[in-house]
């Protein structure tokens, strides 16, 4: 009599494990000592009935259906705290990421996928590049007018040859534009020569988290090309 959650193994079929190893050669799934260091350090332990150790175990035992359907891959935030202390250095997060990529588009969390789709056109919140430029200039103008001490404040966009390139998380221009100002003031005080770009300016990038490496690569390449065109020597990440 087979118990409902019993795992019967006549012959191991390890399709998913093979896929992971093909995409990520250093996945080291087999090196797991099942010591549980990962589970102890993971805030997602217990969510969806899993933890990193169980996750790897299911892979090793070929329980592919269960892995392909579990939402634990979205409870895991790919924070890397498991790998940080894992005696075998197993990067569970990266395996989770690969499994997210295997989830059919229609079954993926909608907002997450949408953030990535929007990113591929302008930015993760979906405001247009024109709107971004308008908002920046509008907020700048307002600040220069209302705060006499900062009348000289600048927020350059597409300034070719600027020494520093600055990205901008889309959240501010979308919902709280005044939050951009403190950083401008700091940069102004320090006196560096910086610029935004009018396209591929977003500092966030959710394409990495959908699991589709090609989307992540595409958006990043676009941003890099933009910066290269502006001939900036440094790229400042704001977070």
């Amino acid at each position: 009599m087979t118990a409902p959650d019993e795992i019967a193994i006549k012959k191991l079929t390890l399709k998913l494990k093979a896929y992971v190893l093909e995409k990520f050669k250093e996945a080291n799934i087999d090196y797991c000592l099942t010591c549980g260091m990962c589970a102890s350090g993971c805030p997602a332990t217990g969510l969806e009935g899993l933890d990193p150790r169980k996750f790897l175990r299911l892979l090793a035992l070929g329980q592919d259906d269960e892995l392909l359907s579990t939402n634990w891959i979205y409870a895991c935030t790919i924070c890397g705290r498991c790998k940080h202390a894992c005696p075998m250095g197993i990067d569970v997060g990266r395996i989770v990421y690969l499994l997210r990529g295997l989830r059919p588009l229609e079954d993926r969390p909608k907002s997450l996928q949408k953030s990535c789709e929007l990113q591929k056109t302008s930015c993760s919140t979906g405001i247009s590049n024109e709107d971004f430029v308008w908002v920046v200039n509008d907020v700048l103008e307002e600040t220069c007018q209302n705060e006499p001490d900062w009348a000289e404040l600048k927020a350059p966009i597409d300034k070719k040859g600027a020494e520093y390139y600055l990205n901008q998380n889309a959240k501010e221009p979308t919902v709280e534009p005044e939050e951009m100002v403190p950083l401008w003031k700091i940069l102004h005080t320090v006196g560096i020569d910086w610029t935004y770009s009018s396209k591929w300016w977003d500092g966030a990038n959710y394409c990495m988290f959908t699991g589709d490496a090609k989307d992540w690569e595409y958006t990043l390449r676009k941003q890099v090309e933009t910066i290269e065109e502006l001939c900036c020597r440094y790229y400042i990440n704001t977070e």
Binding site: P43, N71, Y74, A75, C76, T77, I78, C79, G93, V96, P109, K110, S111, L112, K114, S115, Y206, F209, T210
Partner: peptide, 11 residues
Amino acid sequence: GGGGGALQSGF
């Protein structure tokens, strides 16, 4: 807990 797209994922 907001990382890895969790804020967008809906769970």
